[in-house]
């Protein structure tokens, strides 16, 4: 995976825990903001958009925009509002629809 955002960390390394992202193991700082931790780990494909099917990444980091949406243990959640826990099963939120809604 191509590295995404480059982030410089000012904090001493927190203890890392293992999570699954799209079936692959990742080590993230326990208790950290999930969206920020994933960005720092080089992830920049979060939710997939309904029509174009392209990846979005966190935009607002404060629970407004829903672009950081992930399936966290099977439930769609704004990852910027979630804290890292060991063993989380994370997947990009898929919202692919048969579109467009031309008939409406």
């Amino acid at each position: 995976m191509k590295p995404g955002l480059r982030l410089k960390s000012l904090t001493p390394d927190a203890p890392l825990v293992e999570v699954q992202f799209g079936g692959e193991a990742l080590m993230l700082p326990e208790g950290d903001n999930l969206a920020a931790a994933l960005l720092a780990a080089g992830i920049d494909g979060f939710r997939q958009t309904p029509y174009q099917g392209v990846a979005r990444a966190p935009y607002c980091m404060m629970g407004i925009c829903f672009d950081c949406l992930l399936e966290v243990d099977g439930v769609s959640q704004q990852s910027c509002m979630v804290q890292v826990r060991a063993g989380m099963d994370l997947r990009p939120a898929r919202q692919r629809r048969e579109g467009p809604y031309a008939s409406l």
Binding site: G4, S9, C60
Partner: peptide, 25 residues
Amino acid sequence: WTLPGVMGAGAAQIMLKQSGLAVEN
């Protein structure tokens, strides 16, 4: 503005405050 890597300036500030992470470059 929908591309990954585009964020609010406030969002970058939030990452700094909450996670001690500074967006580079």
